[in-house]
Amino acid sequence: MISTLAPTGTAPASGMTEASRRRAMAKANRVVTFRIKRCDGPGKASYWQDFKVTVPKNANVISCLQQIAANPVTADGKPSTPVVWDSGCLEEVCGACTMVINGKVRQSCSCLIDDYAPNEGDVMTLEPMSKFPVVRDLWVDRSRLFHNLKRVQAWVPIDGTYNLGAGPKETPASQATHYVLSTCMSCGCCLEACPQFNEIPDQGSKEANEAAWNSAFIGAHAISQARLFNAHETGKELKEERLDVLMGTGGVNDCGNAQNCVKVCPKHIPLTESIAVIGRQVTFHAIAKFFRG
C-alpha cells in the first residue's frame, strides 16, 4: 500500500507534519497575485493576466479561481472575463482540475495557497497543461489520454453482465499491488512531465487525430494500466494484443527513462516499475513470437 503518509516510525507524536508547519506560518487574508496564462480558444494566441485575490487561511487554487470568476477584474483594475478551468471532485480523486502551477503540473484542488504563497504579495502562476490542446484558458482537451486506454484495451473482457459467479480469488499482497495501479485517475500529470510525450497539433478530424495519436508515445499512464490488466486473471486474455501494441511505434520502447512520471504522480503509482514490467513482458513476448511464429 502506497501512501504519502509519513512512515510510522518517523512521524512526530504530535502528528504535525512539515506541511502543517508551513501552513501555520501563512498569514490570513493576505493578497496574493495570480498570474494566469489565458487563451480565448484553439488557434488563438495566449496572453498573461494578473488577478489579485484576498486569500483566507486554508484556501486552495480552486477557491481563488472561484473568487476571480465571481469578480473578474484584473490586478490593474480592468474588467475581464471569468477564467475558465476544469474541475470536479475537489478532493483529488477525479483528476479534472490538473494544471501547471508555478511551473509544475499538479491538481489545483489540493494545491493550498498557504504552501505556495504564504506571504503578502506572493505571486502564483497558473498555466494550462502544455501537452494537450487548450480549449479555453486553463481547460485542455485530454481526449488523447482516454484514447490511449483504448489502444491497450484497458479492460477485463468479461462475458457480459449476467450472473456468472465470483471473480478469481486474489491474495492480499496481489490486491495491494493492483489497487495502487487502479487508483490512476487519468489526470495526465505523468504525461505533462514526460519529455517523450509531446503535443500533437490538431489534425483536422477525429480520425486523423486518432491516427496521429496511435503512432505517438502512449505514455506511462496507459502502460501502467496495461500492466494492471495483464496481471488480472481474465484481463490476461488480451495480454498479447496489448503487448503487440506496446512493442510497436509509440509503445513502451519510446520511454526515455527520465522518470519524471513517477515523481509527479499524485497517487504515487509506481509508474517506472510498470514501465519495467511491461518492458520485460514485451521482451519475452517478442522472443516467444520469434520462435513460435
Binding site: 500500500m1 503518509l5 512521524a11 507524536a13 502528528g15 483529488e92 493550498l112
Partner: peptide, 26 residues
C-alpha cells in the same frame, strides 16, 4: 497506524493533504 494506512490510506491522505495533520497521530 499501519493497519490504518492499509485500510483507510486514501481518506487519511485526503485529510493530511487538506488540513496538514496526520490523522493516525492526531
Amino acid at each position: 497506524p499501519d493497519y490504518l494506512t492499509r485500510k483507510l490510506g486514501g481518506i487519511l491522505e485526503i485529510y493530511e493533504k487538506f488540513v496538514g495533520d496526520d490523522p493516525r497521530f492526531t
